[in-house]
């Protein structure tokens, strides 16, 4: 666009400034607080950078930073196991979403044209309903006096209610329920664009339906699966709502630990270092995703 320089600068400058101010600088602050020590004061961390003393003040500030919080997080089993729990939770959820979502996406993509939009619309609709409401529905269903237990009791299948709410089972159910659309949409979008002739060629060359699917369709739909896996994995790793509503405290996850460290214990430096480490945990899948999607593009 051939805008005059001043307008061009304005167009770049406004969103740039916004992102610098409300995205980049906050992260610099998180990093620096993660290297500080907790104190009982306002703000509850030390040292605090003050610009009054000029460069000497900055130097003084820098010398007081250390990696003590990271040592605490890495040495304490509670934190380590919550990272592992979170990653395990995210991996399992991603896998379950893929296993459940792929056949659904495939079925939608092979439906007649006017049904496709209706099915996508139907799944879309659940996705747009509030996240909290969708999770709340499972509290209604799974509670000790919930709908499922009531039905089982009245049918005489069980004598006393099964504990389903506040278990890992409930967390996985809630997570898969909440994130399944995020897997279905990208897989569907890829399948929808697939060129049918490759599949037909493999059929002509003597492959069975199932063989053709595994050797042609499945490999070709990898970009969609990757995108879906990514969309599910990242938010689930830091998930707070689902574990707090459907889970129990005996399986701590990192989202909850961070939240509690900040809101209940008021240990800001520790909370900041937990989030820095969480970012590091997430960098790996992001780099992998970039790598795989670049490779897909090159093909």
């Amino acid at each position: 666009m051939n805008l005059p320089i001043s307008r061009r600068n304005l167009l770049i400058g406004i969103p740039y400034t916004w992102l610098m101010l409300f995205f980049l600088i906050p992260f610099v602050i998180v990093m620096s607080i993660s290297l500080s020590d907790p104190v009982i004061a306002i703000p509850p961390y030390s040292p605090v950078l003050s610009t009054n003393d000029g460069l000497a003040g900055v130097w003084n500030y820098l010398t007081q930073l250390d990696f003590e919080n990271f040592a605490i997080v890495l040495e304490d089993d509670v934190y380590l196991s919550s990272y592992l729990n979170s990653v395990q939770m995210a991996l399992t959820t991603t896998l379950l979403c893929l296993l459940l979502g792929y056949p659904i996406a495939y079925a939608i993509a092979s439906s007649p044209m006017h049904w496709k939009t209706r099915f996508i619309m139907a799944i879309n609709l659940t996705f747009w309903c509030s996240f909290l409401i969708r999770i709340y529905a499972w509290i209604v269903l799974l509670g000790n006096q919930g709908v499922v237990n009531n039905i089982l009791l009245s049918l005489g299948v069980i004598d006393s209610p099964i504990q389903m709410l506040n278990t890992d089972f409930a967390v996985y159910l809630g997570l898969v329920y909440a994130y399944l659309p995020l897997m279905i949409f990208p897989v569907y979008a890829t399948l929808e664009k697939l060129d049918n002739s490759v599949y037909e060629a493999s059929r002509d060359l003597g492959c069975s339906h199932i063989e053709s699917f595994f050797r042609v369709t499945l490999p070709l739909s990898r970009p969609g699966m990757l995108a879906g896996a990514f969309l599910v994995f990242v938010p689930v790793t830091g998930e707070y709502i689902v574990p707090s509503l459907l889970g129990n405290a005996s399986t701590p996850v990192i989202g909850r630990v961070l939240w509690n460290e900040f809101f209940s214990n008021g240990d800001w430096p520790l909370a900041a270092s937990i989030s820095v480490l969480l970012m590091l945990v997430l960098v790996l899948p992001i780099v992998l995703y970039q790598f795989f999607s670049n490779r897909n593009e090159e093909k």
Binding site: F27, I29, G238, S275, L278
Partner: peptide, 15 residues
Amino acid sequence: LVLPEVITGLALLLL
């Protein structure tokens, strides 16, 4: 888009 909400929230609050 690729950061968990807890991190974005914490970062902004600290800012």
